[in-house]
Amino acid sequence: MGPRGASVSEFLHMGGYGFYVWTSYGAALVVLGLNVAAPIVRRRRLVRERPGTSAPARATEPPPSLK
């Protein structure tokens, strides 16, 4: 485990701050994961989508109210 101690439970305990430390790292993992997943999912949708057939991510023509 390196110089900080031998056991996994000690590592997870983080000197009593385990909740704060691991929640931070968990949140970071979620944010990083979503940032990778979002463009992959969008690209898959964009490549599959045929113009004019399925509903695009954004309206092709502005609604009359905005014209």
């Binding site: 983080m14 000197g15 009593g16 701050y17 704060y20 430390v21 931070s24 790292y25 949140a27």
Partner: peptide
Amino acid sequence: GDAYRIIFVH
């Protein structure tokens, strides 16, 4: 203590 390790993501 170990709480400062949050710095590495913060």
